[in-house]
Amino acid sequence: MSLHVPSPAAPPLTVDAPVLELRSLTRTHGTGIAEVHALRGISLSVYAGELVAVMGPSGSGKSTLLTLAGGLDTASGGQVIIEGQDISTLGRKGLAALRRRSVGYVFQDYNLIPALTAAENIALPRELDGVSVRKARKEARAALEEMNLLEIADRFPDEMSGGQQQRVAIARALVGDRRLVLADEPTGALDSETGEAVLALLRNRCDQGAAGVMVTHEPRYAAWADRVVFLRDGSIVDQTLTAGADSLLAAGGAE
């Protein structure tokens, strides 16, 4: 068999700082005999333009990694650095502001607000961040248009298919200047073709400069990523690299 596989896109920027950096991250639950090490010293850097998939068996620490990366949980040790800021140095308000400004989440069950339309759902985080309603809604419509979803701008979540809801959730995750998207099994509830459309969109947003981390147990979706990181028992045991990314590793950009 002989295939002419296209070269991967240019490796992520090596001069810029990573959008997300995890340094020796640990998370322990319980104490003494009941102590469980969910993460055991994870180091990982994710750059603008890069989509990283995290795979591993249940209980390997995938979801813990994502919640710590997004500041939804507090690490037992190590650092989470988002756009150059160590989130442990920020107060509660500061962290909330950083999350709103820099981090977008995509969940398996979409988490759209049922009483708001697609455009309103996308506009909401911007409005919370102090952007005028008018401007936020304009941005939301522009985001939907860019993703060929303008026709559902005024639909409520229960009037959309699962795939449409998830695409709206991705638009919401990346509206404004947010450059980091954290996706937890974003294709979990979708059929194969719709899941793929969602992945293609996530891939496209990363190609346009976002940094993405996606937890998935589906190898077919992980294959859309530039890099696949394998977790086992709270540690990174292996990762696939795109050609050219070795220089990045040599520079200490990733574990």
Partner: peptide, 23 residues
């Protein structure tokens, strides 16, 4: 198993790039 999984997922990444290009 892990060495093979690495290789297989890497091949899937290559095929997926081919597919994305085709789509």
């Amino acid at each position: 198993i892990q060495a093979q999984r690495h290789h297989t997922v890497k091949a899937m990444q290559d095929y997926t790039r081919l597919k994305a290009q085709s789509l």
